[in-house]
Amino acid sequence: MRGRVLIVAGSDSGGGAGIQADLKAVTALGGYAATAITALTAQNTEGVHGVLPVPIDFLRQQIRVVLRDIGADALKTGMLHDAPTIEAVCEEFAAEAPGVPLVADPVMVAKGGHPLLQPDAVEVLKRRLLPLAAIVTPNLPEAEVLLGRPIPDAAAMPAAAEALLGLGPRAVLLKGGHLPGERLVDILATPEGVIRFEDARIETRHTHGTGCTLASAIAAGLAQGMALRDAVARARAYVRAAILAAPGYGRGHGPLDHGVTVDPARLGAF
């Protein structure tokens, strides 16, 4: 086990996204995951049925006790819910983990359509969180909210990713999965230029938690000392394998097989 990742995000009672997906992804890639939970959700593959925010003081306490004891080689944020939560997380990171690379997944809406970020928190996210990020990983709808303009097709993605760099993160992975077509395109933008990743689309309804999983997988790579491009490439390969191995659970957007890297047979008989 190598590479400590502190994940600050919401809990998914269905186990497919949020903190649960984050923990599985980091563990599956050989890292150590710790958590600070921002909110509890009553959630399954069909949608989010309720949200209970965690008190801000207790969220701060979670972050502090982990960082002051276990420490972290990378940070990852997911569902932050509202402006006070974003402010608190940014303050704690600045005080307790300066210089530790942050992977910021700007979670705004659940797969089933339930809002996970209050509208008035978007500007705070842009002003406070994004400038702290080593990489931000928006999907196209999230990027459109952050930029205030549409991104109509894959041809528009490189310019959009570069525009997102202007908001302060050191890198942007703009995910193109919401676009139609047989090919899926993601764009990695850094001050050094743009890298295009492209794969054949997997036709499946089992994609719950893909964004959380990808961001945490990238964080695991950074925590393990991987170069950013390599961490992104490995994370994408992991998510793709986890989608292909999805167990088929639930009536809605089903979960991935986060344990696709794990072979229980290696343990032998008990």
Rank of each mutant, 00 (worst) to 15 (best):
V145R: 02
A95H: 04
R127W: 07
G50N: 07
Q224R: 14
E144V: 06
M157V: 01
H253R: 05
G248Y: 05
Y238H: 06
L179S: 12
A233G: 08
P138N: 05
A42Y: 05
R4I: 07
A217Q: 11
P191A: 14
A246T: 08
L256D: 07
T45Q: 09
I70L: 15
V239H: 10
V100F: 04
A104H: 13
Y249W: 13
G15P: 10
D105W: 12
P53L: 07
A189K: 09
L116N: 09
E96C: 14
G10T: 06
A237E: 15
P255C: 05
V26W: 01
L256M: 10
L52H: 14
D153A: 01
D69T: 09
H253I: 10
T85R: 09
A94G: 03
L267R: 03
A39E: 09
L228Q: 13
T85M: 14
G78D: 10
A159P: 06
G14V: 04
D153I: 11
A134E: 13
V262D: 05
G3I: 10
G177C: 02
V5H: 11
A233L: 02
A121G: 13
M226W: 03
V8M: 15
A227G: 15
G211H: 06
L214Y: 03
R68Y: 03
L244I: 04
D120I: 05
V194L: 06
T190H: 07
G16W: 12
A97T: 02
I135Y: 03
T210K: 03
L102W: 04
G30Y: 10
Y238T: 12
A231Y: 05
R229Q: 15
V5M: 08
L214H: 02
P152W: 11
L117S: 09
I202M: 01
A171N: 00
Q118A: 15
T77V: 04
R196Y: 07
A154K: 13
A33Q: 07
N44D: 15
R149K: 15
I19W: 02
K175I: 02
D69N: 12
A83F: 13
H206C: 06
E91V: 11
L188V: 01
L174H: 13
A110F: 13
L222V: 14
I218W: 00
L167A: 02
P101M: 09
V89C: 12
T41H: 08
P264Q: 08
A133G: 02
H258I: 09
G99F: 00
K175C: 04
L222T: 08
I7C: 13
L75F: 07
A269I: 07
D12G: 08
A242I: 08
E46M: 09
L256Q: 10
G18Q: 05
Q118G: 01
E182Y: 01
L147W: 11
I218R: 00
D22F: 00
P169F: 12
D105V: 10
A42D: 00
M108R: 11
V8L: 15
V145P: 06
A17Q: 08
H49C: 03
E87N: 07
L222R: 09
H208L: 12
A33Y: 11
R240F: 01
A143G: 15
Y32A: 01
V194Y: 01
L117H: 10
A237N: 02
K76H: 05
V124F: 10
A220Y: 04
L165Q: 12
A159I: 04
P247K: 02
R266P: 00
G225S: 09
D263A: 11
M157E: 12
A104T: 07
L116S: 03
A227D: 14
G181I: 04
P247A: 00
A25H: 10
H208Y: 11
